[in-house]
Amino acid sequence: MTMPVLNKKKSKGLYIVIFGCGRLGSGIANWLSSKGNSVVVVDRREEAFSSLSFEFTGFTIIGDATELDTLETAKVEKADVVLALTPDDNTNIMTALISKEYFEVPRVIARVYDPNNIDMFSEFGVEIICPTLLAVKEIQNTLGFIGGDEG
């Protein structure tokens, strides 16, 4: 679940659209823009953009991720990477699937809390980050390190 591709092209920054400017979205937006990428952040609420740092070099668009119009305004069809990071699972899934299937974006990553649907949406070529599973793995690792007697 790391993102090595994002730093791969040295000569030219990528065009990245991020849906959801919460803690994760704004943090990633700040980091990606500092790496020389052209970043567009989309959120329904204008106040959300206040969490972008002063150093953020990019664009902000107020809009609903479930409206095709918003995706068009953000020029998703030209994006190298789309990140769907709103607080709502289904919104992220829909935005990610449309970006992948309809706009044919090369890399699409969605955050989904419910681990149930991961297989199904991975079939579309969307990469899923599941905080629930990550936490489970992390705890397993930690426990394994401490106790180590699984069998």
Binding site: T66, N90, I93, L97, M120
Partner: peptide, 15 residues
């Protein structure tokens, strides 16, 4: 919500 309808019908179809 379109996103909920999409996900529900995709589950119906695929699962």
């Amino acid at each position: 919500n379109d996103q909920d309808n999409l996900v529900a019908s995709l589950i119906a179809k695929r699962v």
